[in-house]
Amino acid sequence: MPSRSIVVVSGGLSQPSSTRMLADRLAEATVADLAARGLDAVLEVVELRGLAHDVVDMTLTGYARPELAAAQSALAGADGVIAVTPVFAASYAGLFKSFVDVLEPGTLDGTPVLLGATGGTPRHSLALDHALRPLFAYLRADVAPTAVFAATDDWADAGTDDVQPLPARVRRAAAELAQRVAAREPVARGGLYDSVPSFEDLLGGA
């Protein structure tokens, strides 16, 4: 079965994280939809919480440590991306934006992206359209029309469509991403970051 690479970026700061939970739901639905289209999905999850120090270091030095460089390379070689962030102060999390800031220009050019966000109350859902969508438009990504926001109350009885609409919205957004991924030629593996030396290499292992 032909395969496609799906990279999931989770900006959750706690463990366990509702942001990671939403990211996993979106990934599961995307994998199922791709399978229905005759495509296998190779999933890779990037947890930004574990990369926080590396992101700050790269912001200051311009060089990525190996784990961050691997995450950047995965995005550059992705056929599709699921990006989910918590909402703080009516916008994406600072760590999420800092990670985007250290991506090489052109990393997400034309890449299908599904956007998601989590927050305490539904009023934070506006961040999807006034913060996240403009950010990924600037990155020239192919953003799926349906974005998914999950507030705290959305997780209660989230398994049934007749109780609340989160599961149906997840499936619709995943189908839009899968359709975009299936319509494109698979990305040639090996991306923008393969020739970028790590900070350790530049220091000679010091």
Rank of each mutant, 00 (worst) to 15 (best):
Ala78Pro: 07
Pro86Arg: 10
Leu43Lys: 12
Tyr92Arg: 08
Ala76Cys: 13
Gly80Asn: 13
Leu39Ala: 04
Val42Asn: 12
Ala36Glu: 15
Leu60Phe: 14
Asp57Pro: 00
Leu34Arg: 10
Arg65Gly: 01
Leu60Trp: 12
Ser73Asp: 14
Leu95Gly: 02
Val100Met: 14
Val45Glu: 11
Val56Met: 12
Ala69Lys: 15
Ala41Met: 03
Leu95Ala: 06
Val56Thr: 15
Phe88Val: 03
Glu28His: 11
Thr59Asn: 09
Gly62Met: 09
Phe96Pro: 02
Ala36Arg: 15
Val55Ile: 15
Pro86Ala: 09
Val84Glu: 05
Phe99Glu: 02
Thr85Trp: 04
Ala70Trp: 09
Ala52Thr: 15
Phe99Met: 00
Ala78Cys: 03
Phe88Trp: 14
Tyr92His: 12
Val87Cys: 04
Ala29Lys: 06
Leu48Pro: 11
Ala69Arg: 15
Arg37Gly: 14
Ser73Ile: 00
Val100Phe: 07
Phe96Thr: 01
Ala74Ser: 15
Ala52Cys: 01
Thr30Tyr: 04
Ser91Asp: 09
Glu28Leu: 11
Asp54Ala: 15
Leu34Gly: 09
Ala52Val: 10
Lys97Ala: 08
Val31Gln: 13
Gly38Arg: 13
Phe88Met: 06
Val56Trp: 13
Val45Lys: 10
Phe99His: 01
Leu108Arg: 08
Ser98Trp: 05
Thr30Trp: 01
Gly80Pro: 12
Ala71Thr: 01
Val100Ser: 08
Thr85Tyr: 03
Ala74His: 11
Leu39Lys: 07
Pro66Phe: 09
Leu103Thr: 01
Ser98Ile: 02
Asp57Asn: 12
Val31Phe: 01
Ile82Glu: 06
Gly50Leu: 05
Ala64Phe: 11
Thr107His: 07
Ala89Met: 08
Pro105Lys: 07
Val31Ala: 11
Ser91Met: 11
Phe99Trp: 15
Thr61Glu: 11
Val102Glu: 07
